[in-house]
Amino acid sequence: MVEKTDPVQAALDAYAAAVAIRDVSAFVALYADDVHAYDAWDQWQFSGIEAWRAMVTGWFTSISDENIEVTYTDLQTSVGDSVAFGHADVTYTAFSVAGERLRSMTNRFTFGMELQAGTWKIVHEHSSLPIDLESNSPIPAP
């Protein structure tokens, strides 16, 4: 029996690799041209690959001499013949050039993917942070 690669896990692995080297092209290649993203920062939503590319370019150029490590936990996926769905906790950790941990943040991610011309593409991404009602601050991951 041939085991199929989970496209959501593969996308998250490629996402982490692209962030680590700040490769905008590799990052954006994970997404469909008509991607619709609800990001947790700065803007309500992003529609289309060019809007998403502009966001990613701004994000990557804002990272000075830090190294960003992306890890994920609690990944749950469902994969069909041409669509896939998944969600995970995604943690971003910044390290100094000397390897000192500077800060970390965990977001909740949901991905919807489609098989397009033989390649899995993210068509929808939803990133969120739960907010504490009293402090209006993000609730840390458990």
Rank of each mutant, 00 (worst) to 15 (best):
M113T: 03
N67G: 14
S64I: 14
I63Q: 04
A10L: 06
K121P: 01
R22W: 04
S64Q: 13
S135Y: 03
R22N: 05
W59V: 10
D89R: 15
Q45I: 14
A11L: 07
G80N: 00
H87S: 10
D74T: 10
V19S: 02
V2H: 15
T57W: 07
P7K: 01
S62V: 01
G99K: 02
P130K: 05
P7T: 02
T5D: 10
L102K: 00
E114L: 15
A40R: 05
Y31D: 10
D81F: 08
Y38H: 15
A98Y: 08
D89I: 10
V2W: 12
S62L: 05
A141E: 06
S25L: 11
D33Q: 11
V123H: 07
W41V: 11
H126E: 04
T71F: 04
M55L: 13
H126F: 00
R22D: 01
H124G: 09
H87N: 13
A18M: 02
N67M: 11
V70E: 09
D74P: 08
V35N: 00
A94D: 00
H87M: 15
M113Q: 05
I21D: 15
V56S: 01
I139Y: 02
V56K: 04
A17M: 07
I68K: 03
P138L: 03
D89A: 12
K4D: 14
A26Q: 05
D81M: 08
D34L: 06
D39C: 15
G58E: 03
E100G: 08
F111G: 08
V24T: 08
N67P: 11
F46K: 09
D33C: 07
W52T: 08
T5P: 06
R53S: 03
E114M: 14
T93P: 00
S128N: 01
R22Y: 05
E100F: 08
I68R: 04
Q76K: 14
V19Q: 02
Y38W: 15
V35D: 00
A37R: 07
W44I: 10
W44S: 14
A37M: 10
A16W: 01
A10C: 05
L129Y: 06
A54T: 11
L133E: 10
I131H: 02
S82V: 13
S128L: 04
A16M: 03
L12K: 07
E3V: 13
P140E: 00
M105Q: 15
M113I: 03
A14D: 06
S127Q: 15
T110I: 09
A51D: 07
T5G: 07
G118K: 03
